[in-house]
Design a protein around this nucleic acid. Structure first.
Length: 494
RNA sequence: GAUUCCGUAGCUCAGUCGGUAGAGCAACUGACUUUUAAUCAGUGGGUCGCAGGUUCGAAUCCUGCCGGAAUCACCA
């Protein structure tokens, strides 16, 4: 442990002094009757109310024989008034610090300046805080807005010590509460339709369902490698093979790739598979789901992000990938040869590398020319087959797949397709992936024989959808960094 | 991976032209029984991210490294 600073030393001394006064600085429980919010609601000029509140001291004004302190609980803050004579051992009050957790019993009253407070007749230390916390102070300006002085805003410390961030910057709790509500609203939406929430392996002997590099670990007893899942797609489809007709999983996935403001090595995805449905049906379901979730958590389908107001009310614009590129470039690329496409892509500012296939070129063109402009929710449909090894070929064009991605605010939010259930086609496509892998593409998929066997047993027509939960939370809470919607974002060792 | 910026007391920050470290809050001592950025008087607290270099002298200039942020690239 690092050397103690003067404040840590002092607090340890106070701990001993408390014990000498016969005070247990870490008692096992406190019988709280009201939250800070309930106390404020309870106040009545006519009738006197007695309450027991508890929380962390966030500010303190000691005045010799009386002390005012603000105590913070999950609901907010309440001022307590501790006066010598009213409290059995006022010496204990003198030993209190900002950060200590206390319980206070007493009568609810209003101070001279009108703040509802608790006039203590008893005070118990519930946890002596041994490490000082940042102490921003709040004032109100002439318009009544809260002004925070010396805010605790160092991003690194806030991410590394999120508990401090949550204590001090209590507003940020709202983001995480909303995150929780988003997930539970989505869960409610699926449960109401009779689809089953399931759990599939995080540790997988063979990874699949996406193109990404995995984290590898090792099982000692079995003496074999395991991979942390990059997706749960192949397991969920096995469950549809098994006869479930609607399954979903809210899944932590792990991808051993770059980190930036939209990527964290572990992140949350929701994947759902529904039998006898196709991607057209899935687009409607996605619209309904997002509209529902958004209005449940924000009481409106509109979200303001930067300079844009995004509306999650359906229906969303639908346009095929090739048409979207056509609109953006004024050029119909659907009948171009791969060579023509490469030349055209280059003319549009795409960096061309040797070995880029038709699908890759189209994808690059799309990223370069279209993606950023997709602000309102937009379904981009019918991706090239090379880009979509797990998606069913399009009913009208075997070079394309029945796939869509949903773009919002210039970024991908969801990915879905009519699932490929032709086992022989799936084998051919995975073998092609394996060839890419052999050629050095570390993100290409591997051939999963058991998954192929499941398809041979038979997967009914099925629609599947994946939604990036972190990105959805970012959109609905107006945050531009994934780190701001994760309690504990991954950080390099300090 | 590239570029730019940042790293000084527990927190927020200042530190000029290179001359040996400052403020507010927090802490400590004293006064104060309705304060609320409490007030008043006083005190202590620093490996200036780390390691080198230049210099009589480095928080300051140079190089490398560590950590962070932003932008870009990569990532269907």
């Amino acid at each position: 442990m690092a050397e103690l600073n003067d404040q840590q030393i002092r607090r340890r001394e106070e701990l001993s002094e408390l014990r000498e006064l016969g005070v247990d600085p870490f008692p096992p429980m406190y019988d709280r009757t009201h939250t800070s919010e309930e106390v404020r609601e309870l106040f009545d000029e006519e009738e006197e109310h007695t309450v027991r509140v508890a929380g962390r001291i966030m500010s303190m004004r000691k005045m010799g024989k009386a002390t005012f302190a603000h105590v913070q609980d999950a609901a907010g803050r309440i001022q307590v008034y501790l006066r010598k004579g009213d409290i059995e051992q006022y010496d204990v009050v003198k030993l209190l610090d900002i950060g200590d957790i206390i319980g206070v019993s007493g009568k609810v009253f209003k101070t001279r300046v009108g703040e509802i407070s608790v006039h203590a007749d008893g005070m118990e230390v519930l946890c002596k805080s041994l490490a000082p916390i940042p102490v921003p102070k709040e004032t109100k300006d002439d318009d009544g807005n809260v002004v925070i002085h010396d805010a605790f805003k160092d991003k690194e410390t806030r991410y590394r010590q999120r508990y401090l961030d949550l204590v001090v910057n209590h507003d940020i709790k709202d983001v995480f509460v909303k995150r929780s509500r988003i997930i539970s609203a989505m869960r409610r939406f699926f449960d109401d339709r009779g689809w089953l929430e399931v759990e599939t392996p995080v540790l997988q002997p063979m990874y699949g369902g996406a193109s990404a590099r995995p984290f590898v670990t090792h099982h000692n007893t079995l003496d074999m490698p395991f991979y942390l899942r990059i997706a749960d797609e192949l397991y969920l489809k096995r469950l549809i093979v098994g006869g479930f007709e609607g399954v979903y999983e809210i899944s932590k996935n792990f991808r051993n790739e770059g980190m930036d403001r939209t990527h964290n090595p572990e992140y949350t995805a929701m994947e759902i598979y529904v039998a006898y449905k196709d991607y057209n049906w899935m687009m409607e379901m996605t619209e309904q789901c997002l509209e529902y979730v958004c209005s449940e958590v924000n009481n409106t389908t509109e979200v303001v992000i930067g300079e844009h107001t995004i509306n999650f009310a359906g229906p969303y614009k639908r346009i095929s990938m090739l048409d979207a590129i056509g609109e953006a470039t004024g050029q119909d690329i659907s009948s171009m040869s791969t060579e023509e496409l490469a030349t055209f892509a280059k003319s549009q500012g795409v960096e061309i590398e040797a070995g880029m296939n038709r699908g890759k070129l189209i994808d690059e063109l799309f990223s370069e020319k279209v993606e950023d402009s997709l602000i309102q929710p937009t379904f981009i449909t019918d991706y090239p087959v090379e880009l979509s090894p797990l998606a069913k070929r399009h009913r009208d064009n075997p070079d394309l797949t029945e796939r869509f991605e949903l773009f919002v605010n210039g970024a991908e939010l969801a990915n879905a397709f009519s699932e490929l259930n032709d086992a022989l086609d799936q084998r051919a496509r995975l073998e092609e992936q394996a060839q890419h892998r052999a050629d050095g593409d570390e993100e290409a998929m591997v051939v999963d024989e058991d998954f192929l066997h499941a398809l041979e047993v038979g997967l009914p027509p099925t629609a599947g959808l994946g939604i990036g939960i972190d990105r959805l939370v970012m959109l609905l809470t107006n945050n531009s960094s994934i780190r701001d919607v994760l309690f504990f974002p991954q950080m390099r060792n300090a």
